[in-house]
Amino acid sequence: MWFYEKKLEYPVRIKKVDPRMAKYITSQYGGPDGELAASLRYLTQKFHMPTKELQAILNDIGTEELAHLEMVGTMVHQLTKGASVEQVERGSLGAHYTDHDLAVYPSNAAGVPFTAAYIQSKGDIVADLVEDMAAEQKARATYEYLINLADDPDVIDPLRWLREREVVHFQRFGEALRIAQELKDKKKFY
């Protein structure tokens, strides 16, 4: 279970309205390589992890991803809060405004709603951990694209920090994969 902590994992303090950037960053909220997919993937896969280390890794990274989801949602919210309809239209957010006003909504950058089909929970620990490593790389790449699209330092700073976390998670999953592989070798499945 979880207790809420009344703080973000890392500060987000965006002053300037920028609906265009909000539209892009939304993909890390509810897109294919976003934080919702990441947290859901790991917190679902944890149930079939066979050892205490592997259970800990999936549980704790999944938990951190929820904190990232909150940071990304905060970014999207602060980028649109106070925007005029004209700014919204100029930032190509008119379609989003039609269905959601300026509410944060889990979709990709093109507005396609989140789907659980973005994630897998295969039951095979090697297959799942390799997917998790790929997921971290895809999230890292997305943050890099977003940094290329951004110009406000208040936006770039948390994006850089989030990118760095994907690199760290990739490393931890790499160690988890080694543990899983050793375990599989010992058991001799074939």
Binding site: E9, Y10, P11, E53, I57, E64, E175
Partner: peptide, 23 residues
Amino acid sequence: LLEQVMAYDFCMIDLGLFLNTHP
């Protein structure tokens, strides 16, 4: 003051992940 709490708590999150594979 909140950012100080955030910084130390983040260190614990990061070290905690590391310790899961390096206990």
